[in-house]
Design a protein around this nucleic acid. Structure first.
Lengths: 418, 418
DNA sequence: GCTATTTGTTCAGTGGTTGAATTATTTGAC
DNA sequence: GTCAAATAATTCAACCACTGAACAAATAGC
């Protein structure tokens, strides 16, 4: 056999590999293996899976246990004959991630531990459109402080925080535009600098990452499904429509972090004008306002977060205008998704946010457009399914992004002072 | 400063780092550094850039020189006072990549050395639509043998080959569908197995990779521009329209390698029916047939590879129908590109293949649609430019993909027997 | 209780990097 | 022309982390 098909991936280690990097890399490898294992693995199992020797794995695990990243499970997993294994699990009393979210009609905070368990979750409903950014952030700091106190009561140490915002965020944490909140050029880090820090700083882990909610919601989905797909498109249908793209288990953020603006993909290029300046954007056909209007509902009547529930109720009751509105929205969404799948060759699309509840009615038209328009659909069907977390995906994903970072690169945490 | 914005990138080393991996990784690091340097760097400069010690770099370079991957440049670069540096360059007499291409009306072969120089290039024009896949591949083998002989005459050793095909290729090298060639389910490796091998096998380097031409053309563009962008969309306008997506210097292939089917993104969802089964696909408005028809030309009159030249000539002569046809095609292309940029947040779009010649007329309408429809365009403008390599991008990119792989992971080549 | 079996640890050995000292080679000043 | 300063590259003992084999620990089955 002299032929062989292979992937073209020239991703070399960009950075030099020094003496100590060896241990640093293996800390990440072993920790990642423990995180990915379906059951608590023994040191021997980790050694077999990674190709390291048992001696090395033992040494690495000692470091991880000393750093409160890994613990031994009780009771030990039964294995049959031989000395019983001691199962390794991610520590439930080590570092944790703080997830925060500001949205149109609620604030939320949550804490996720290394193992991915949600250990704290608060949602405070309030219409934030009339509230100034500074005041909104001040309220959020209160939620964060309560979350931190609760986490510490459970023996957890918050190692970093991530804030989900429904808008465009630049690399410095400046919210360039969050139309539904009415924010424009809001410097989140500056506004928070007057408050006590959300978490004690840990080297190598950003104290606060500000990120688009749709991106974090996609990560949340990855986090929720233990053996789900590692590459998918997550579409969040809210007032606007955002998408997060997950490729090989990592969020794809684009050159400046502004990927996923699926709401402004043209689906009717000469159609309805959009406030973005374009015409026929998806948002004008499948966004909350458009669907409510088509269903004959007045959006002033109901808060934004109940719109999806209301639509689902009406659809369930076979309300004709609602059914038609969802069919039209689904078709527009399907046109956009077909383009995305043609471009990126993804095999899974997750409907999240407000769309999660509406999946039963959106899925058929989306699938119809996709199977008609995607060139490769005949060789490999595209799965369209509902989000597991729904509207909570963004906060959970935010907190999860912190712990994912620790698992991927535990050196910062291990080298912390104290 | 307790806040800090960071990228979310949990890409840990999936594989264990063993004792010997240290040297293997540093071979790649040092080689990559030499490849990326604008001028031949000294050992000391490589040490400074990578963080390794001079001692280590010297040892690593010795291995690379012994393996014919690196040489010392003559004359030595002048540096000022002190012992003169010995400049390190990628070897011009070591391994090389063989690039092959089958297209509608030509076969091509080329050889690219480690430094990226094209050392051999042949194009044989012939209408391949009436030729059976087996015969076409047999002719290609002839071209490849000539290329190999020429390469060896120059002291080069072919380490691997890549074949560009205008169609969908699966992981086994099976061409599922190449509509313009009339190919369907053509098992390229099987058909080649009766011929002598294209290259002597090298461990770790696939003897033959079969890949979509648009993907390889995108890589070729990356290869041509020394300090161009590392993330961009490369659109190849031929009979069909394909795109290659390069992210951080690596080709994004999608889950099954079928990414980039931009030709079937819906731009007029209820518009002209497409042979893919959909309606209003970009290809029906900006593909070669559509543009020729709109310009009032009969495509039977001229071979496919001269269509772009002909259109450019007419446009230059201010032929009204041609101008209008290109404006319409550019608008359709702009609608599709706007969707892509909204989704992926890319800042550069390269017009390649037949579009390269037509850029002066396509660029304005594309830019107009993009700036109108891309949400983030006001903060960071999108560059639309012409391909540097034009129609040769795919073969060059194919050959370049082989050498890129060697530079990224030189271990296979170094461990070869002989 | 004995054996087979598997887990986890210990320890000398080794590969590869480190850092300082050394050699090599040039420029520029006196 | 000679010497000092500067930079490049090599040499070598030390050290760090992984390796492999031997060994101790703990259990199931007979």
């Amino acid at each position: 056999m002299w032929q062989c098909q292979g992937v073209i991936r020239p991703a070399a280690p960009a950075t030099a590999v020094r003496q100590g990097s060896l241990r640093e890399l293996n800390l990440a490898v072993v920790l990642g293996r423990i995180a990915a294992a379906p059951r608590p693995p023994s040191r021997a199992a980790v050694a077999a899976a990674t190709g390291l020797t048992r001696a090395t794995v033992s040494a690495v695990v000692d470091d991880l246990v000393a750093g409160r990243l890994v613990g031994e499970s009780e009771p030990a997993p039964r294995t049959g004959a031989g000395r019983p294994a001691r199962g390794l699990v991610l520590a439930g009393d080590g570092p944790a991630g703080l997830g925060l979210e500001i949205n149109v009609d609620y604030l939320a905070a949550c804490v996720v531990d290394l193992a991915g368990e949600v250990r704290h979750h608060t949602v405070r409903r309030a219409d934030l459109r009339p509230v100034s950014p500074a005041d909104a952030l001040a309220r959020l700091v209160g939620l964060a402080a309560a979350a931190r106190a609760d986490a510490e009561r459970q023996g957890l140490t918050l190692a970093g925080a991530a804030l989900a915002v429904p808008g465009l965020v630049d690399a410095a944490g400046l919210v360039r535009l969050a139309p539904n909140l009415g924010w424009r050029d809001v410097p989140v880090p500056d506004l928070l600098s007057g408050h006590p820090p959300l978490v004690e700083p840990v080297p190598g882990i950003p104290a606060l990452v500000v990120e688009n909610e749709a991106n974090l919601a996609a990560l949340g989905e990855l986090h929720a499904g233990p053996d789900g797909p590692v590459s998918f498109l997550h579409v969040s249908g809210e007032v606007g429509i955002g998408a997060g793209i997950v490729l090989d288990g990592a969020l794809f953020r684009g050159v400046r972090g502004w990927s996923g603006e699926i709401g402004h993909i043209p689906v009717r290029p000469d159609g309805r004008p959009c406030r973005c300046g374009g015409r026929g954007c998806l948002e004008r056909y499948a966004g909350q306002e458009a669907v409510l209007a088509a269903a004959g509902l007045d959006r002033a009547d109901l808060p934004a977060d109940t719109a999806a529930t209301r639509l689902a109720d009406l659809a369930l009751a076979e309300h004709p205008a609602t059914r038609a509105a969802l069919a039209e929205a689904g078709q527009a969404l399907g046109i956009a998704v077909a383009g995305v799948v043609n471009l990126l060759d993804l095999d899974t699309v997750v409907l999240g946010g407000g769309y999660a509840l509406l999946t039963p009615w959106l899925r058929p038209p989306v699938l119809a457009e996709v199977s008609r328009r995607v060139l490769t659909a005949k060789w490999s069907p595209v799965t369209v399914r509902s989000s597991a977390l729904g509207p909570e995906a963004a906060v959970v994903g935010a907190a999860g992004s912190v712990v994912r970072r620790i698992v991927a690169d535990p050196v910062g945490w291990l080298n912390r002072t104290g």
